[in-house]
């Protein structure tokens, strides 16, 4: 596992306690897991994502990521309706390891309540929480 200083934390996304990132693109939120999360999990071999059209509340489990010897649940940082999932992860789950903030995105959702965004952390707050 890498040191925090070796990991990448972009400024233009927001972070949750469960190590998901959220990025607003127009009115839609794109969601994935942080570089820290993928590094902790190790080689990701499978990502299980929900169906388009399903609606989840903030904090709900929306899927799982699997490494060879572990399964981790994924929790939605903000609630809403799933409008797209990253189908590429089905055949190339390693995108989550290699490009966590770009090619490794997981969901695109329509927010139920924009104010939930306020509870997410910016980069410096997230880094602070990781140093714990």
């Amino acid at each position: 596992m890498k040191e925090l200083s070796e990991l990448n934390f972009p400024d233009d996304v927001m972070y949750s306690d469960d190590h998901e990132w959220t990025k607003m693109e127009n009115d839609e939120a794109v969601i994935g897991i942080s570089d820290y999360a993928q590094d902790q999990l190790g080689d990701i071999v499978f990502v299980e994502l929900p169906q388009v059209g399903e609606t989840f509340e903030k904090g709900a489990e929306f899927g799982t990521v699997e490494s060879v010897k572990a399964v981790s649940e994924l929790f939605l940082p903000v609630g809403g309706e799933i409008i797209a999932v990253n189908d590429a992860l089905e055949d190339t789950p390693e995108l989550v390891n290699n490009e966590p903030y770009t090619g490794g995105w997981m969901l695109r959702i329509k927010l139920s309540d924009k104010s939930e965004l306020d509870q997410l952390m910016n980069k410096s707050a997230y880094l602070e929480s990781l140093k714990g």
Binding site: V45, F46, E66, S67, V68, K69, A70, V71
Partner: peptide, 12 residues
């Protein structure tokens, strides 16, 4: 695919 199995996914 042992993440399906009892020793990893336990009760699930």
């Amino acid at each position: 695919l042992s993440t399906r199995e009892q020793h990893i996914r336990r009760e699930k």
